[in-house]
């Protein structure tokens, strides 16, 4: 039950969407781009989100792209997580996405929605951080492709009126050996205690993490430590010393316990990826 009222718009093109946003924004409507819309609906009902104008972008063709050619994987931002899982073009993404929320919710939750989410786990971004993907952004200044590392720091740093259209990923990353695990407080449902996605490329291990800190991250320092050539245990300990802060301490788990779990997961990731040969 959303207590506030809003106007609902469903533009056909990116240009229209962007223009609508500017217009509505100018008129004080606090517009919101809406693709799966689950966050507006669930946060709105408990007064944590508000808008007077919803711009539903989910059927804009550019946002629906799903193609693998010319060595590049293009994924539209309003593809649902289920669509991504069912086509399975990027196995690491499939694995990571398939642990988000639950299956039925993933029929509604979209790739872009999860990456741009306010709830800070944003696990769908992890594979793109590992694959040095690019993101296509559109806004009042037009469309541009930006390396994800330039624009994703804890969250996707979009300017007002901009929206995420697509991700572009080189195919060599989607074939790389990977490791992905989500650990929860207990069993198979609930928010992450820790989610780790890792892959091995050019003989180096890359790791991206959600649930350890109040933001998802991939850390250069952590990866240097993990690829330093000592024993696995020593590398894991070195990585733990250079983690970003703060470590989450909440009802899902204490900070100390999260570190205990993370240590074991990192160890497992390294053992698994060490064994892999491309």
């Amino acid at each position: 039950m959303l207590p506030f009222d809003f106007d609902y718009f469903k533009p056909d093109t990116l240009e229209e969407a962007v223009e609508l946003f500017q217009y509505l924004d100018h008129n004080g409507k606090q517009p919101m781009f809406f693709s799966g819309g689950t966050e507006l609906i669930t946060l709105g009902r408990i007064d944590l989100a508000y808008t007077e104008a919803v711009i539903d972008i989910k059927e804009i063709a550019d946002c629906r792209v799903m193609s693998l050619n010319g060595g590049q994987l293009l994924l539209g931002s309003t593809l649902t997580l289920t669509e991504i899982e069912e086509t399975n073009l990027f196995p690491l993404l499939t694995k990571t996405a398939s642990e988000i929320a639950d299956h039925t919710a993933r029929v509604k939750i979209t790739l872009g929605g999860n990456i741009c989410a306010r709830i800070f786990y944003r696990e769908a971004v992890l594979p793109f951080l590992l694959a040095d993907s690019q993101v296509v952004i559109v806004g009042p200044e037009g469309k541009k492709a930006v390396p994800i590392h330039e624009i994703f720091h804890e969250q996707l740093l979009l300017n007002r009126g901009e929206l995420l259209v697509q991700t572009i990923t080189e195919s060599r990353f989607i074939r790389a050996p990977f490791f992905a695990i989500k650990r929860r407080q207990q069993w198979e449902t609930g928010y992450p205690l820790i989610t780790v996605a890792a892959l091995k490329i050019d003989e180096k291990v890359r790791v991206a993490v959600s649930g350890l800190c109040p933001f998802p991250f991939r850390s250069k320092e952590v990866e240097i430590a993990l690829n330093s050539g000592q024993s696995i245990e020593a590398r894991v300990e070195a990585a733990l010393r250079v983690l970003p802060r703060p470590i989450l301490d909440d009802v899902e788990g204490s900070a100390d316990y999260r570190l205990f779990v993370f240590r074991n997961i990192l160890t497992d990731a390294l053992y698994k990826l060490e064994k892999e040969r491309i």
Binding site: Q186, E188, T189
Partner: peptide, 8 residues
């Protein structure tokens, strides 16, 4: 129910 979790 996303933070208070019965068995699934």
């Amino acid at each position: 129910l996303r933070t208070y979790r019965p068995l699934r």
